[in-house]
Write a protein that binds this DNA or RNA. Structure first.
Lengths: 182, 182
DNA sequence: GAATACATGTAAGGGGTTACATGATTCT
DNA sequence: AGAATCATGTAACCCCTTACATGTATTC
């Protein structure tokens, strides 16, 4: 479910990871790599870029003063203010309502040795573990016996799947968390 | 990402599974069981129920002609029209853009022997397999060597996680699909 | 020369959240 | 008696999608 004001941070992260980008290029990213966790159309991206430029997070480049190309494309670069804003966002700890931001934030940490990586992962591990435990608890209370399962079989399956999914997530995060500490 | 006109089907499914429900009770459901795949606030639910009643999908009940209780609560029941609409929705095959509806539809199939169950599961298995294969392909093209991984380590991790997640989903669906055919 | 992709901009409308509002019931 | 919960309704606002719109560059 889309959270408020997430798009500008994604655009910031994209530009930062690629040094400089046009709105069109960002639009392409949403079709490939980011599509798993977020989508955005060009009609959303262009106004947002304007706003971010007004706020001083990014700066439009003149493309070598428009000598080499007549294209009406605008490249953007992240300003120092923008870098601070991005880092602050990445540093903000995830909460239980927030945790769908995990893959998004992870996506924008390019350096394997970044100090942002270990806390991000261990926090998500905490949240996923909590969630898995909660789902397990729900299972015992909502479906205490075979009769309950037969009365709402589809519900039972979705809960089973939830536990399976979250367990798999916890395993993956644990492995990664251990690797980080090495 | 919220698709158009999904809430009314969820409400329809909820009322149908529980025979009769009030808006308040539906609101509670969104806090517990359904929260994994969908959320809705009361300010969204009540107007939607009005509209569904206008469309003849559901029917308000007078609560035994309001003798036993002075509570200003309204119970709703699914009409025959509503049942048809719900079944049609459940029967509509999932597409690649649609497939987040899978757990939702699954949730509302109460009967283990429902004819709706096998096609729903086998279709989702198809879609998840496609998705897993696509992600694997992306991995080989985007990260052909160790250098590429080091340049965008976070991106590499999200893609790894995507493959892991989807593989786990495929395994779960395969097992269930096999059980269905027994 | 025509079609497709590149590249950006804006307007209308839908769905959802937050906040404002009101009254009844139950619990302590 | 006061607080918390039950129970519903409505208005403002935000984000996003779909559609309308325009012009350039590349490809066949």
């Amino acid at each position: 479910m889309p959270k408020r004001r997430t798009l500008p941070y994604i655009l910031l992260g994209l530009i930062h990871s690629n040094q400089q980008m046009t709105g069109y290029q960002m639009m392409q990213e949403f079709k490939h790599e980011i599509s798993d966790f977020w989508t955005a159309s060009h009609s959303q991206i262009y106004p947002e870029l304007q706003r971010m430029a007004d706020d001083g997070w990014i700066r439009p480049l003149a493309l070598g003063k428009k000598v080499a190309s007549k294209r009406n494309q605008t490249y953007y670069q992240v300003t120092t203010t923008g870098e601070q804003v991005l880092t602050e966002w990445l540093e903000t700890p995830l909460t239980a309502n927030d945790d769908e931001l995990f893959p998004l934030k992870l996506f924008f940490i390019d350096d394997q040795n970044s100090k942002l990586l270990p806390p991000l992962i261990s926090r998500q591990l905490e949240l996923s573990t909590e969630r898995r435990n909660y789902l397990r608890h729900r299972m015992t209370t909502v479906f205490p016996n075979q009769t309950a399962i037969q009365a709402h079989y589809g519900h039972y399956l979705t809960l089973s799947r939830g536990i399976e999914r979250e367990s798999n997530y916890v395993s993956w995060l644990k492995k990664l968390d251990a690797e980080m500490k090495r």
